[in-house]
């Protein structure tokens, strides 16, 4: 739900001193609203996350460019529906190992918040059907398998001791197709098994 409006400079004015002013509109309401932090700015993006934080509404945004005494017509986005269109980030993945097991703790990504002090809202609260696709790669056997889970705690037991396993996890929500963002691959080794060392 971090919603950033981006645009390109007008044709032929790359590098020129062009300032931009952004306004946004809540579909079905009556007025264009402005955002003070994005009035007469030089950069070509504007963070509208706070303005579009009610993800059940749909929004438009418009940008006007001013160059010297010239003022452009406004360029307008299509209708943006955060609930359907936002990308779902990967969960946080914490791995702890034992001789023959790896515990995986998944923490759902959080909804964007303006003030770090605000209480967090987990994407799990917004998307009750959020699932995780966990991929496990056994480096020694060169085998990969996966699991689809909804809970946030997973124990892979009966693993081979002293073996490197790599894990990456993608969150997904059944519904309209969304770009998946898998987590970084994390690799851990199961501990050595003293018993087998004695044989």
């Amino acid at each position: 739900m971090k919603n950033i409006l981006q645009w390109s400079p007008p044709e032929g004015l790359q590098g020129a001193e062009v300032t931009y002013t952004v306004r946004y509109f809540i579909y079905g309401q009556k007025k264009w609203l402005s955002k003070s932090e994005c009035r007469n700015i030089l950069r070509t993006y504007c963070n509208l996350s706070a303005e579009t934080s009610d993800y059940e509404h749909q929004y438009y945004a418009r940008v006007k460019a001013v160059w010297g005494t010239n003022c452009s017509k406004g360029a307008q986005t299509g209708r943006f529906y955060p609930f359907l269109e936002t990308r779902i980030g990967p969960p946080e993945v914490a791995l702890t190992t034992d001789k023959k097991s790896i515990s995986i703790v998944l923490t759902a990504p959080e909804k964007w918040k303006k003030d770090p002090e605000e209480s967090s809202i987990s994407m799990q609260q917004i998307y009750s059907n959020l699932k995780y696709h966990v991929s496990i790669y056994n480096a020694k056997a060169n085998k990969t398998w996966s699991q689809c889970v909804t809970n946030q705690m997973l124990v892979l037991s009966w693993l081979e001791p002293d073996t490197l396993y790599c894990v990456h996890v993608a969150s997904f929500v059944p519904g309209p197709p969304r770009l998946a963002q898998p987590s970084e691959k994390q690799c851990v080794s199961t501990l050595k098994d003293p018993a087998s060392a004695l044989k």
Binding site: F25, Y27, G28, Q29, K30, E56, G78, P176
Partner: peptide, 28 residues
């Protein structure tokens, strides 16, 4: 899911035809 997938294929083109942005039929 099948309906969602079907509509997402044409959503942008259908939305582009609706220029009356201050009226919403299915309101909260």
């Amino acid at each position: 899911q099948e309906m969602r997938n079907g509509f997402s294929e044409i959503r942008d083109r259908v939305l582009a035809e609706d220029e009356i942005i201050d009226v919403r039929i299915l309101r909260k």
